[in-house]
């Protein structure tokens, strides 16, 4: 089974190429990566650790990490909803760390 370090290395490579970086607070980042692995074990997919999953991969496909909302959230706030993926400016404290509001539409919440 994959561990958090392996997941970190794997996702870092893919996401950094797109301009998204892990939160440089390693404790927070690894806590979230561990939580993603818990969700994978529980449901079979790496659903967002900060949202309630319904257990159905199709219904939750918009919140499989990195979620579809992370792109507009990083664009607007410099961070995804969980503070896992962030922009360089967010990591360097050049923009304020605002609390990212839930962007997922109500009708998607089928749990």
């Amino acid at each position: 089974m994959m561990d958090a370090q392996e997941l970190y290395e794997r996702m870092k490579k893919v996401q950094e190429a797109k301009g998204y970086y892990f939160n440089r607070d390693r404790e927070r980042t690894f806590e979230l990566l561990e939580a993603l692995l818990v969700n994978k074990e529980r449901h079979g997919y790496m659903g967002c650790p900060c949202r309630l999953l319904c257990g159905d991969r199709d219904a939750d496909k918009d919140i499989i990490c990195p979620c579809v909302y992370s792109v507009p959230d990083i664009d607007e706030f410099g961070s995804c909803y969980c503070n896992l993926y962030v922009s360089t400016d967010w990591n360097e404290g050049k923009i304020p760390h605002e609390y990212v509001p839930e962007r997922r539409p109500l009708e998607k919440m089928t749990f």
Partner: peptide, 28 residues
């Protein structure tokens, strides 16, 4: 709360550090 959620963990830690008593339910 959710057992996996970082904001939930941060909330519990904050309240704990402030010695505030709280109940919680991990809905997940």
């Amino acid at each position: 709360s959710l057992s996996t959620c970082s904001h939930c963990k941060a909330t519990k830690k904050f309240l704990g550090d402030c010695t505030i008593k709280y109940e919680f339910i991990n809905v997940d």
